[in-house]
């Protein structure tokens, strides 16, 4: 039988899963060679995990950056209820990320009773036909996230770029001589810091000039 694909365990992987009420678990595994190449492409960058909540009303949900140490590890994240996605890669000083792996959406388990007390009845003898699954609130965001193998999303607000114009990982020009000032971990709550600009407010003059 012809099955010529390479072993998938050589691909970078990022698993994001809700493991308890208020807790997410990110588990990533990046091949050492890919890890080294990514770091070499951005010598001023830092390895990071960026987390986005995608079920908020914002079209550009705020991101949160967590710096990480190695190509494979587990990180438990305290978050509130919601639906999240994450990416792992090398964060450049200008806030852009060379993404190595992206996760599927993960839901944080509920921590309290639902406020919804509406009463609908299902007769289990004649269950209703189920329609197609309801799209996630931030379906547009997720589609962008799923473009290509490891797409780099647009970093500016406005209409989404056509898929073909999305630059590949590592094709960004090296930033100027600036001091990395990416934020430390923790939710960014400022409305100005929209997706995917986790570091937007901290961009340097060098990038603004560019």
């Amino acid at each position: 039988m012809g099955c010529d694909g390479g072993a998938t365990d050589l691909l970078p992987r990022l698993l994001l899963t809700g493991i308890a009420p208020g807790r997410l678990c990110a588990l990533w595994s990046v091949p050492a060679a890919a890890w080294r190449r990514a770091l070499a492409r951005a010598p001023r960058g830092r390895a990071a995990l960026r987390l986005y909540r995608v079920d908020a009303s914002d079209r550009n949900p705020p991101g949160t950056v967590f710096f990480i140490d190695g190509p494979g590890a587990l990180r438990t994240l305290d978050v509130r209820e919601g639906v999240f996605v994450a990416e792992v890669g090398v964060l450049r000083p200008d806030g852009r990320m060379d993404r190595l792996a992206a996760s599927d959406p993960a839901t944080v388990p509920a921590a309290e009773e639902s406020p919804d007390i509406s009463l609908a009845i299902v007769d289990v003898r004649h269950p209703p036909q189920e329609g197609p699954p309801t799209p996630l609130p931030a379906a547009r965001f997720l589609r962008l996230f799923a473009l290509g193998r490891h797409p780099q999303p647009s970093v500016r607000r406005g209409p989404a770029r056509p898929a073909g114009s999305v630059p590949a990982v590592g094709q960004y020009p090296e930033p100027g001589p600036v001091v990395p000032q990416a934020p430390s971990g923790g939710h960014e709550t400022d409305a100005e810091s929209g997706w995917p600009l986790a570091c937007r407010r901290r961009r340097t003059g060098a990038e603004d000039a560019a």
Partner: peptide, 16 residues
């Protein structure tokens, strides 16, 4: 009440 008993630092290597 969640999945930490099965996904934690000691068992993380299993899942990937």
């Amino acid at each position: 009440g969640g999945h930490e008993t099965w996904l934690n630092e000691a068992t993380a290597w299993i899942w990937p």
